Simulated assay, not measured.
Amino acid sequence: MTGGGARPSFPFSAVVGQDGLRLALTLLAVDPGIGGVLIRGQKGTAKTTAVRGLAALVPSSDGGGRAPFVELPLGATEDRVVGSLDLEALADSGRPSFRPGLVSDAHGGLLYVDEVNLLADHLVDVLLDAAASGRLTVERDGVSHTAPARFALVGTMNPEEGELRPQLLDRFGLAVDVVGSDDAAERVEIVRRRRAYDADPAGFAARHAAADSAVGAEIEAARARLASVTVPDRELTRIALVCLEVGVEGMRADVVIARTAAAHAALRGRDRVSEEDVRVGAELALPHRRRRD
């Protein structure tokens, strides 16, 4: 998010190419319960640009204004990330005092973790738990506190700098691999837009404001429609057969595909999941879960 006289983010609608990346982020904005998006790719492939651009236009999921955008620094302590409990307050008031962390700050918005593969595994676990459940539970010395934590989790990583453990990789709802364009005309357009933005960020953002507003409105409308979207048994069977064919373990993939398909149907203005919606969900939810022999 930007405010005051701050430099505006590069517009989401101005990102050239990277259709899979933009679609995955948009679907996550429609339904954060999908469980997060992992973006894998080398530097210079618009990973961070797209995330920040989306955050600037997404409405808050708990109502009122733009969604908060929180970036988690790699060196953050566990207390800074999840918050802490002041147990001394327990003796005074009969209940502990909760000091919110970055996860609570992201409630209703987007939590962004760059180089998530370099973050401590137990912190990645906590973030994925909260993103999927919409709740954060902090425990200290047998005392616990639960707070709402509905946010869209986005992690980016460069595989050349190390992989996530398979157990953590599976817990991300969706994953997208991004690469640099191999189309000369597209590369020229990327450079042209970047130069125009660097020369006049405010003017460039203004020229794309209408397109960005349209994306934000589509997300808001899809969120309102999502609860009424149905997934027919025929499509649930299709999901099960695809997951069995790929050989994924457990049921997480089935659940994520169904949820993603419903979000896609809502985004396209439909109240019933179709084969196309299932295909989109499978393309985003299965590649990082394929069994490796």
Rank of each mutant, 00 (worst) to 15 (best):
A210K: 14
E245T: 15
V278H: 04
P59H: 10
P73R: 07
V215K: 10
V176D: 02
Y197T: 12
T49H: 11
H107K: 09
A56D: 11
E249S: 15
Q42Y: 10
G65I: 12
G63P: 04
L74A: 15
Q167K: 15
R80H: 06
L74K: 11
L25I: 08
L236F: 04
R195S: 14
D86L: 11
A50P: 01
V246D: 09
V58C: 04
L57A: 11
R207T: 13
R290K: 08
L118S: 11
V248K: 12
A205G: 06
S93F: 14
V176T: 08
Q18I: 07
L267H: 03
D105K: 14
F12K: 03
G63D: 02
D19P: 07
D183P: 01
D293Q: 13
A221N: 10
A76R: 10
E283M: 11
R150W: 05
Y197S: 13
L54I: 12
V191N: 01
A266I: 02
A184L: 13
P148H: 02
A266N: 01
G203C: 04
R290F: 04
E115M: 06
V215W: 09
S133G: 07
V51W: 00
V179W: 11
H208W: 10
T45R: 00
L174S: 11
E189I: 05
G35K: 09
A227C: 09
G180P: 13
A147P: 00
A262H: 02
T156Y: 04
A46D: 09
P96N: 01
A185Y: 03
A217L: 07
L118H: 10
L284Q: 13
A6L: 11
V30I: 14
V81A: 00
R279S: 07
R225F: 10
R66F: 10
G250T: 06
I239E: 05
